[in-house]
């Protein structure tokens, strides 16, 4: 007999070893997320996928599915907290959507649309962060990094390179590059690496490709992140 748990009142089947997120996606249910990606080891840092599991808040991407769990994801309370967490991500960095070439394809923006976020709510931190444009093909704008570590994981797990690491602590967290100079040009990163294409925001960009798709014709201009994400995540190997 298949094991199941309850997600927002629906029975979700799962296999041993699956997380709540994996089982939910397999059953066709979207749980908002940014640091989760089906191809890489779950990380659990963004906390957007926090769900209520038998009264306790857990990250759906790391918490194992277990028979008999009652999981609440689409409640007013969870989505309000998700909106606040998204607002935190916006105010801790420098996210100026109108001038960002990732606008329309940015998952942070997509999640914000999905959660009906209309303001930043909190005080902006306006941190001073640099841009690394040293690489001939790739640009990093650290202002837009949300520390999801997807580039860290993609580089390690798929590219076998460990080009990136998350350094620092607390609000002084920073993305760093594994090279003696600390610059991207001296790292092993190439334009064909998975890590180059994995950034959910506009922090890692490929040069000479901006605006090939006009604003207005981009992913989240026409489709909600819940649709786009379900298409991509469930088709992953």
């Amino acid at each position: 007999m298949t094991q199941t748990f309850m997600l927002d009142g629906l029975a979700i089947p799962f296999e041993d070893g699956q997380t709540i997120m994996e089982a939910a996606i397999a059953a066709g249910h979207y749980i908002p997320h940014l640091c989760y990606h089906p191809d890489f080891t779950p990380y659990g840092s963004c906390k957007l996928c926090n769900v209520n599991v038998n009264g306790k808040i857990c990250a759906a991407c790391t918490f194992p599915a277990m028979a008999g769990q009652t999981v609440i994801s689409e409640s007013e309370e969870q989505n309000r907290d998700r909106q606040r967490i998204t607002q935190m991500l916006f105010v801790e960095g420098n996210h100026f959507c109108p001038s960002c070439e990732k606008s329309g394809n940015c998952q942070l923006q997509g999640v914000a649309y999905h959660l009906k976020m209309t303001d930043d709510h909190f005080n902006h931190q306006f941190p001073h962060r640099e841009i690394d444009a040293s690489h001939p093909d790739i640009l990093i704008d650290f202002n837009r990094c949300i520390f999801c570590a997807l580039c860290v994981r993609a580089s390690q797990e798929e590219d076998g390179k460990a080009v990136f690491a998350i350094s620092g602590r607390g609000i002084n967290k920073r993305l760093i590059i594994n090279s003696d100079s600390g610059q991207l040009k001296d790292s092993e990163l190439t334009v064909n690496d998975r890590a180059t294409h994995i950034c959910p925001t506009g922090a890692i960009l490929i040069k000479h490709t901006a605006y090939q798709v006009p604003i207005g014709d981009r992913q989240f201009d026409h489709h909600s992140i819940s649709e786009v994400s379900m298409d991509q995540d469930s088709s992953a190997p």
Binding site: G44, S45, C46, K47, L48, I85, M88, L89, V91, E92, F122, N123, Q125, I146, F147, G168, R169, G170, I171, N172, K173
Partner: peptide, 13 residues
Amino acid sequence: CGFCTPCRVGTIL
């Protein structure tokens, strides 16, 4: 430690 969003940003706010 700055790992998760609520604590990293929330403690500063």
